[in-house]
Design a protein around this nucleic acid. Structure first.
Length: 98
DNA sequence: AGTATGACGAGCT
DNA sequence: GAGCTCGCCATAC
């Protein structure tokens, strides 16, 4: 049996979809809301099955995404009205509360 | 079975 | 604020 059930994966997907455009959330928040014990699981889910999700609305708590994503992520967010300063997003203001 | 790796986070220096 | 360590958990080899 998988350590993370399909149900948990679906829940994470649903949570991410529930984040409105123009807002963002963090891996830690999604993990907590989904009952996952580690935010890394969220990253794992997005890597495996996040291609059809608004994954760009999910940021690390630092506000600065990993290098391989930071360019595309910030560009996509900019399209939705989320402006980044010096490669970082102001989570204080834009973080979505579940 | 052990090691390395990764869309992360919190804590310390 | 920048850099490092450790905890976390699933995967690849």
């Amino acid at each position: 049996m998988a350590a993370v059930t399909d149900e948990q994966v679906e829940l994470v997907r649903a949570l991410i979809i529930s984040v409105p455009a123009g807002r963002v959330t963090t891996y830690g928040d999604v993990a907590s809301a989904a009952g996952l014990s580690s935010p890394r699981i969220v990253g794992w889910i997005l890597r495996i099955d996040g291609t059809d999700l608004p994954w760009h609305r999910v940021l690390p708590a630092s506000g600065r995404p990993a290098d391989h994503l930071r360019t595309e992520q910030l560009e996509r967010l900019r399209t939705e009205g989320v402006l980044a300063v010096d490669g970082k997003v102001d989570l204080r203001t834009l973080r979505h509360r579940f």
